[in-house]
Simulated scan of single mutants.
Amino acid sequence: MTDAGPLDAALAVENRMFRALAVLRLVLLANTVGMTLYRLDNFTHREVGLALTVLMVVWTAVAIWAYDAPHRRLPALLVADLAIAFATLLSSPFVKGDGFNATVPGFWITGALMAWAIHWRWVGALVAATLLCATDLLIRDGISQTNYGHVFLLMIAGPIVGYMCGSLQQMAAERDRAEREAAIAGERARLARAVHDGVLQVLALVQRKGPELGGDGTRLGQLAGEQEQALRSLIRQQDTLQTPGASPVEDLGGVLERLGNRRPPVTSVVTPGAPVELPMVVATEVAAVVGACLDNVAAHVGEDAPAWVLLEDLGDRIVVSVRDEGPGIPSGRLHAAVEAGRLGVSESIRGRIRDLGGTAELFSSPGTGTEWELTVPRPVV
């Protein structure tokens, strides 16, 4: 998965924030124009004050247009925005004379501050707020409680807006990524069901019925079995791709299929159509137990003796059955082996499963083959 989706989501949040800022700019401009006309008699240089007001009207229109398109939000635009706010603020002593109360732009400078907050998050807001607030305080003859309050609000509001904008963009990117992963997982599950209900079932049927036909039918059954295993492996390789930062998990079905490929074509591995994801350490231990069972088949029944491995996902637990058609294990033989100090079955099979919180049951009698049923509780992945 590329980063295009998360970047688009973050940009969408920024676009909405700048559209909201456009409305705020108009409100601030209306307030500044109204206050300028109302207090025009207090200006020492009225013509300059009116010229600056016209400049703020023009720049507000330009800024709304420029910020509306992402490709125009270049650093030069934001620097120019802040520079004009700084210049109008700095002109207040000249335009209004000594002892002025309100600056020429008033709250209009908040537009530039919010633009820095939206585009450059809390760091940009802190830089812009520090420059504007320091200028506002330095150009005054004295600092009143009202002036201090305005400066304090700008220093707090700017970084907070910047932080919130960054948080919203991160949340949007994470939501977009989760939705895309959910859609991909859903499509993979649908395709896996389609393949499992169609192609895999046909291959399994050919594998079972082929030997009954004799001659080429036996070879046809073997080829069908090999193709079934290959197709399942391809599905699992796609299903078990993990995103960066994901916790390490393993598809037990894929592990068992690779394990069965060590003894082709005498080992048949049947798994669900969907991945059976377990923590990697659990999947590794279960695979080791199944490997020990298959080693016992090779050692006590024969290298070419067939064996069957069946994996079932029951939601809260997984069950793996390993079966052969050998002579079986006489009653009391395993107990006698433990008494004699041979702990292969006791430790490599039952001990490992017990450590995982599961159970290992043996079903065997002379002449009926042997079947191990391994049940392991499914941890939360």
Score class of each variant (00 low, 15 high):
residue 318 I to E: 02
residue 130 T to A: 07
residue 324 D to C: 12
residue 112 A to W: 04
residue 267 T to Q: 03
residue 208 R to L: 05
residue 372 W to G: 13
residue 236 R to H: 02
residue 150 H to K: 13
residue 146 T to Q: 15
residue 203 L to M: 10
residue 9 A to V: 00
residue 19 R to T: 03
residue 178 A to F: 06
residue 118 I to K: 07
residue 241 L to R: 15
residue 70 P to C: 02
residue 254 G to I: 13
residue 296 N to W: 01
residue 222 Q to F: 07
residue 187 E to I: 05
residue 249 V to S: 09
residue 306 P to M: 14
residue 203 L to P: 03
residue 287 A to D: 09
residue 6 P to W: 01
residue 51 A to S: 10
residue 180 R to Q: 13
residue 148 Y to C: 10
residue 87 A to P: 00
residue 240 T to C: 04
residue 213 L to C: 06
residue 373 E to F: 03
residue 356 L to P: 13
residue 8 D to Y: 03
residue 379 P to W: 14
residue 213 L to M: 10
residue 193 R to H: 12
residue 104 V to F: 05
residue 287 A to C: 13
residue 56 M to D: 02
residue 211 P to W: 15
residue 356 L to E: 06
residue 67 Y to G: 00
residue 72 R to E: 12
residue 215 G to H: 11
residue 300 H to G: 00
residue 128 A to R: 04
residue 49 G to D: 05
residue 225 G to A: 12
residue 341 G to L: 01
residue 285 E to I: 06
residue 149 G to C: 06
residue 39 R to S: 06
residue 377 P to T: 08
residue 58 V to I: 10
residue 103 T to E: 13
residue 13 V to D: 07
residue 51 A to H: 02
residue 129 A to I: 15
residue 14 E to K: 01
residue 145 Q to P: 04
residue 242 Q to H: 11
residue 134 A to K: 03
residue 330 P to N: 08
residue 166 G to S: 10
residue 113 L to H: 11
residue 67 Y to C: 01
residue 141 D to Q: 14
residue 290 V to K: 14
residue 154 L to Y: 14
residue 52 L to R: 05
residue 178 A to R: 15
residue 94 F to N: 05
residue 271 T to F: 02
residue 172 A to H: 07
residue 20 A to L: 14
residue 273 G to S: 05
residue 314 L to G: 05
residue 162 G to P: 02
residue 263 R to V: 13
residue 154 L to V: 08
residue 177 R to T: 14
residue 191 L to I: 06
residue 258 R to C: 05
residue 322 V to H: 02
residue 21 L to E: 01
residue 237 Q to N: 03
residue 39 R to Q: 09
residue 366 P to S: 09
residue 216 D to S: 09
residue 271 T to V: 04
residue 123 V to H: 12
residue 232 R to S: 08
residue 307 A to S: 12
residue 175 R to P: 04
residue 249 V to C: 09
residue 295 D to H: 10
residue 5 G to I: 02
residue 275 P to T: 06
residue 277 E to W: 00
residue 64 I to W: 08
residue 56 M to P: 01
residue 314 L to K: 08
residue 298 A to L: 02
residue 132 L to R: 07
residue 15 N to R: 12
residue 356 L to M: 04
residue 103 T to I: 09
residue 370 T to N: 14
residue 110 T to D: 10
residue 82 L to C: 04
residue 373 E to L: 14
residue 53 T to C: 04
residue 106 G to H: 07
residue 148 Y to E: 06
residue 45 H to D: 09
residue 316 D to F: 06
residue 114 M to Q: 10
residue 197 D to T: 08
residue 326 G to F: 15
residue 98 D to Q: 12
residue 297 V to G: 03
residue 230 A to M: 10
residue 171 M to T: 11
residue 332 G to K: 03
residue 326 G to T: 11
residue 378 R to P: 00
residue 154 L to P: 00
residue 270 V to P: 00
residue 147 N to K: 07
residue 343 L to T: 14
residue 79 V to Q: 02
residue 121 R to E: 15
residue 125 A to K: 00
residue 304 D to Q: 14
residue 35 M to C: 03
residue 178 A to W: 05
residue 208 R to F: 04
residue 339 E to R: 02
residue 202 V to L: 14
residue 297 V to H: 02
residue 145 Q to G: 14
residue 310 L to Y: 03
residue 266 V to R: 15
residue 153 L to Y: 07
residue 176 D to N: 11
residue 95 V to S: 15
